[in-house]
Structures are given as C-alpha cells and as structure tokens.
Amino acid sequence: MPLNESWQTGEIPGPKKASLIVKPDIADAMIRRAKRPILIVGHGILEYEVEGLRLIDCLIELAKKGKIPVVVTASTNKEFLARGYIPAAIMPAVDIANRLTDATWKGIDGKDTYDLAIFVGLPYSMEWTILSGLKHFAPGVKTMTLDCVYQPNASWSFPNSTIKEWAASLRAIVANLGD
C-alpha cells in the first residue's frame, strides 16, 4: 500500500501534505523539541489490541513519560479513569481543535499556547477535516497523528501501516521518550 496516500482514497487535500514519520525517532524528536505539546485521544483507540497490549495503555505511558497533557474526547475518558489515569481535560474534538486555532488561548492550565498537537483515534474523516482546520487556521501549532493510517492534513503522520508495525512504532516512541 502506498505509504503517503490518504487512507480514504478520495480525500485528496491539495498542495500541502503531511511529512511521513518513517522512523519512530522522528516522532520522538518532534515531541522532545516541542515546548508545549498536547495529546488528543479519540474513542477509536479503544478498539485496538496487539499481542496483548492495549493501545490505550501505550498512550498513557507515552503521556506520562513525555509529560504531555491529555485531552480525551467522547467516551474515551471512562477508559482512562478505569486505568487510574485522570486526563488533563475532557472536551469534544471540535472544541479542542477550535481552541487551538485561537492564538490567545492559554491552554487547559491557563499558562501558555500549545505548539504541538498530537492526535490519535478520531474517526478517519473527522480527524482529516479537523486537521485541515488546524493546518489552515492554527499557524502556530504543528500537528502530528499517531494513527496507523496516513493523515495528509497533519504536519507529520505515520504512513499507512499494519496494526503490528504501528504498535511497534508506538512502543519505540514510548521507549525512546524514557531515555
């Protein structure tokens, strides 16, 4: 499967397309470089389990190690709470994205704007349109997706990959962050 084609074949955005995260260290470097990253987790991640690892656990670890505040959408919160992890905020996806387009918004903690928004687990086309909104209207925010499919409207996206490859990449990112 072509690595940098939209997962939904018809969703062709235009001239500006996401750079590929070909190796986990790229994502890792981006996260390290960011001054104020934020992680937005949609309900889609609840489905995934690879070799006994639930991806939600992987993301919790990522958030903890990278000290990244987590915004949960839809019912994702329940699963986080069930794991004893309290997200920084509960907010619908369009609401958090809308706030990210506001250059004067001081973030969930009221301290400062975010410079990196990491998305994972929204329905593909919804994530696509939301990332497009940010691409055009949030110039100060870089976006990254951690889904197993290519999201052309992000600044950086994983290529289309199998669940296994994807899980391995996520694990590697988490491991690197722990260094």
Binding site: G14, P15, K16, V94, N98, T129, S132, G133, K135, F137
Partner: peptide, 23 residues
C-alpha cells in the same frame, strides 16, 4: 465559525485552481 476546509484549493473559475492554503 471554525472552518474545516475539505480541500486546499478553489476551482470555481478559470483563474483557478487557486491554492488558498493558510493565509
């Protein structure tokens, strides 16, 4: 309004396609 462009371009007239990305 919070806009979520479906396409970076406009192709409504023969000047186009115009790239409207960002600003």
């Amino acid at each position: 309004p919070f806009y979520l462009p479906f396409c970076d371009l406009c192709c409504l007239c023969t000047y186009g396609k115009c790239d409207l990305t960002g600003t």
